[in-house]
Simulated assay, not measured.
Amino acid sequence: MKLYYSAGACSLAPHIVLEESGLPYEAISAPTKTKALPDGSDYRKVNPLGYVPYLTLDDGSGIRECAVIVQYIADQAPEKNLAPANGTRARYALMSWLNFIATEVHKSFAPLFQPGMPDAAKELSKEKIAARLKWVDGELAGKNYLMGPDFSVADAYLFTVTNWAKPMNIDLSLYPNVVAWRERMAARPAVQRAMKAEGLI
């Protein structure tokens, strides 16, 4: 497998999951700004949409979209318990988290990174992020991870997205359960390996 990533982007989530899985893979830098791969070729020849993450499989086919990629990886290493078994109620709970993170949190950050976005629009996005993080904080009360006592791929995705809070001047100290959860996540060896590989720590 080959994971195309851009340092610190949402592709950090599958990077973390690959490290958690123990599966063999190659990580290839595909910076979102330049779209230039290490060999000088245009990343859009691999993924015409031009964004990350993108996972190419050994048969040459590819998978896009973070929430789908992390589930695919988890299913290749079922013994690691990174996702509940397909068809179970717990798996649908995981998919609910992944969809929530993708559509309610991840996408709410997007305007903050958009050049030329009016300040008023950015403030509206920050208000939405704050409301969603307040809800997540409540959901994390009494839990080690989003799904309960054990890490899942949803944690990798939310950790990645909440990494953007500091550079966007969003105060996470208002959400003590989120802060404590982030500390648990940051201490995981797989998280540290993925972040070091991307030059983030």
Score class of each variant (00 low, 15 high):
residue 56 T to A: 13
residue 107 K to T: 07
residue 168 M to L: 12
residue 92 Y to C: 05
residue 121 A to F: 10
residue 147 M to Y: 04
residue 68 V to C: 14
residue 28 I to H: 02
residue 194 A to D: 03
residue 40 G to T: 09
residue 93 A to F: 02
residue 86 N to Q: 13
residue 23 L to K: 06
residue 115 P to F: 05
residue 99 N to S: 14
residue 86 N to R: 13
residue 188 R to F: 00
residue 39 D to I: 10
residue 159 F to C: 05
residue 44 R to M: 12
residue 136 V to W: 03
residue 47 N to Y: 12
residue 106 H to A: 03
residue 176 P to G: 11
residue 171 D to T: 06
residue 110 A to T: 15
residue 145 Y to K: 02
residue 190 A to P: 03
residue 15 H to S: 07
residue 59 D to C: 09
residue 160 T to W: 01
residue 175 Y to A: 04
residue 48 P to C: 10
residue 145 Y to V: 01
residue 62 G to I: 11
residue 56 T to P: 08
residue 50 G to L: 09
residue 172 L to P: 01
residue 163 N to S: 14
residue 68 V to F: 10
residue 128 K to H: 11
residue 5 Y to E: 05
residue 11 S to Y: 00
residue 116 G to D: 11
residue 71 Q to Y: 08
residue 100 F to Y: 13
residue 42 D to I: 09
residue 91 R to T: 04
residue 107 K to W: 09
residue 177 N to G: 12
residue 64 R to G: 14
residue 18 L to C: 00
residue 170 I to V: 09
residue 177 N to Q: 15
residue 197 A to E: 06
residue 137 D to S: 07
residue 23 L to N: 04
residue 9 A to V: 09
residue 174 L to Y: 10
residue 11 S to Q: 01
residue 78 P to Q: 07
residue 193 R to K: 15
residue 63 I to N: 10
residue 173 S to A: 14
residue 136 V to C: 02
